[in-house]
Amino acid sequence: MTSVLYDVPGPKARRVSLIGSVIGVVAIAGLLWWAITILAQQGIFEPERWAVFQIPEVWVLIGNGIIATLTAAAVAAVIAFPLGLVLCLMRISDVAWIRIPTRIVLEFLRGMPVVLMMFFVLLVFATGSFTAVVAGLVLYNSAIFAEIIRAGIQSLPKGQREAGLAIGLTSFASRRSIELPQAIRRMLPSLVAQLVVLLKDTSLGYIVSYEELLRKVQIMADFLGPDYLFPVFFVAAAIYIAINFSVSRLAIWIEKRGSKKAAGGVVHVPVAGIPVK
């Protein structure tokens, strides 16, 4: 696509592009240099600031933070997926008094900030912060999973369900053994992309005082002194981004690989963080 927008560059265009690139690189390098000088003025690069990482306890805390983050995400994902499946089946049920209330509930869950749900569970049910984080994530993500799977079922050719019903399967049996396996396979990239969103949202646990990675950073900064806030934050943010980045890559890999296996190919990954319609 990109190549159609402009001609294959000739010598002149290549020169212009090269000059543009050089200017661009210089501008970006200048910005970075400016940021680094400001940081250096604050004494960020003095070795003793980074010496905190020689303290084993710092790594223990960071490790605990990562474990707490991943535990919350894993527990939430494991509960949210089956729940999403059930919600999806209810949402497309033939029975109106199941379908319509489910639709309202899903609409409600998708329209609310995740942090508000966590806060709600924390205060109203007076649970611990772990339960609040997991419950908030489960409520929101099961609604999103339900919508993703529904989109997958609706993207199947009509004949799949018609054929299932024609050979005498019940409506549920057709969903279970014909439509869902295909739909889930088609939507696998989107489902994995939603996992990235879920993982990112565990950081909201910071707000409800769940001791995940970011909260640990705050605790360490309070304990070690404000001078060490930046180094610790920097490392924690890098870890967060690295974890999310690997899961995003997984989604892209599944999308590329899956297009050979799934009937009709997989559906393109929507941008992470956008609720599917």
């Binding site: 565990t202 950081s203 967060y240 981004i241």
Partner: peptide
């Protein structure tokens, strides 16, 4: 980078 950074961070 931004897509993989949690908003809280």
């Amino acid at each position: 980078i931004v897509r993989n950074t949690p908003l809280t961070i």
